[in-house]
């Protein structure tokens, strides 16, 4: 399936076909460009969606959660669930309410994960996609609750789960209750697994801390995006602890693959195909389950 053009939308007034102002002689006058941190190429923001947010050099830029859902799920197949859960400042943490308001504004989402059901090239699954623009995808009670409910629903319905992770870890503004989400989600994943259901995680940049140490690393199959940072402790904290410089490429997807902790690194352009194939192979009654 050709995904090019799916995200094509006018990036500015000029692209909408408005009149070209006489003084706009150079094409890059109005165009916002993003510099690739890997090769230094300057890419027009409006071209990025068509490129799946991947530079020609292979660098994967971050994508927001809705873009990812559009990109992975069959058109119109995604039905969002558990969006009514509201985040509360349970332990009355200084500045948390303000942070939440800012996060809602900057991300356009009400929390750091979006859950629902969808199909991927016709294969039905439960899906969660974390949102880095919402407090760096940190996991508080609502993130934990949505993911837990999704796994419980998937267990009930016998559905596989495909989850895209991106997170700085547990959300410290919710204190110990955010830590409890690690246990809660891991329990829900385990029950889903014990019932014979398939769980695929896709680790995206960055996946760290309490999310790495819970549902991110519990997939039957663990996929990662090229170059994604994946780890438990932050690199800076490790350097301070061991008082040594860390080697090049430490805590990248490639590093994890080398050390045996992930199954496969899949570039974005291949993800939909590979995910759908894996879903097909794990479909119940697909002939693979010899009994």
């Amino acid at each position: 399936m050709d995904l090019r053009g799916l995200f094509k939308r006018p990036a500015n007034e000029l692209e909408k076909g408005g009149r070209t102002p006489a003084e706009a002689t150079a094409a890059d006058t109005f165009e916002v460009k993003r510099e690739c941190p890997s090769c230094g190429a300057k890419i027009a923001e409006s071209d990025l969606p068509d490129m799946y947010y991947v530079c020609t050099c292979g660098h994967h830029f971050r994508m927001n959660a809705r873009q990812r859902i559009d990109f992975i799920c069959d058109e119109g197949s995604f039905t969002e669930m558990f969006s009514d859960l509201e985040t509360k400042d349970i332990i009355n943490f200084p500045g948390y309410e303000k942070k939440l308001r800012e996060a809602r504004l900057s991300s356009g989402e009400d929390e750091a994960v979006i859950c629902g059901t969808a199909s991927v090239l016709g294969h039905k699954c439960a899906v969660f996609v974390m949102e880095s623009l919402f407090m760096m995808g940190s996991m508080g009670t609502v993130v934990g609750e949505r993911i837990t409910r999704l796994f419980e629903y998937a267990t009930e319905q016998g559905l596989p789960v495909v989850g895209f992770t991106v997170s700085g870890g547990a959300r410290m503004q919710e204190g110990i209750l955010s830590l409890m989400q690690m246990a809660k989600t891991s329990g829900a994943v385990k029950l889903h697994s014990d019932a014979g259901n398939f769980y695929l995680t896709v680790l995206t940049d960055p996946t760290t801390g309490g999310v790495t140490a819970s549902f991110a690393m519990l997939g039957d199959i663990i996929m990662a995006e090229p170059g994604a940072t994946v780890g438990f402790a932050g690199a800076r904290v490790i350097e301070q602890t061991i008082r040594k410089k860390l080697p090049q490429g430490f805590q990248t997807a490639e590093f994890l693959l080398e050390h045996g902790f992930i199954d496969i690194i899949t570039p974005r352009s291949e993800q939909k195909r590979v995910i759908s194939t894996l879903l097909a192979m794990h479909e119940k009654g697909s002939g693979g389950d010899i009994s």
Partner: peptide
């Protein structure tokens, strides 16, 4: 695999 070791214990 510190993250994986912890995750596994939780589950």
């Amino acid at each position: 695999g510190q993250g994986r070791a912890i995750a596994q214990n939780l589950a």
